[in-house]
């Protein structure tokens, strides 16, 4: 199972890279979202999958799933949401002002030295 999730997260990360490198801002934002999914999956896999019980303390259970990656991923989910939301609004604003969502036309080359 771990082998499959690692490969899957690699595929997600690769696809995210491709999306981030494209011109359209919307695709870049989608890419960031996909990237965070890939990384979450990778982190979770590092703590080994499907071993032991749900990490909630119970008297009869001695074997738990690794809680540490879960805690880290929980933080990461929230942060990545904040990032996605912020960049989405930023892109929206940008589109309204500049009338384009193409990163190449945003460069403003005439202002650079």
């Amino acid at each position: 199972m771990e082998f499959i999730t690692i490969v899957l997260s690699g595929v997600l990360i690769g696809a995210a890279t491709y999306l981030i490198l494209s011109k359209s801002v919307l695709r870049i934002i989608i890419g960031i979202s996909v990237l965070s999914h890939g990384i979450h999956l990778m982190l979770l896999t590092m703590g080994q999958l499907k071993r032991g019980n749900v990490p909630i303390l119970e008297d009869s259970v001695t074997n738990y799933t690794d809680p540490l990656p879960q805690a880290m991923i929980l933080t990461a989910i929230v942060i990545s949401f904040a990032l996605t939301a912020f960049s989405l609004v930023l892109a929206l604003r940008n589109y309204k002002v500049l009338g384009s969502d193409d990163t190449e036309t945003m460069k403003g080359a005439q202002n650079e030295n």
Binding site: V7, G10, G14
Partner: peptide, 12 residues
């Protein structure tokens, strides 16, 4: 993108 994906898989 393929390179990044492959490297992540290898690292993982």
């Amino acid at each position: 993108a393929v390179g990044v994906g492959a490297v992540s898989i290898l690292i993982g």
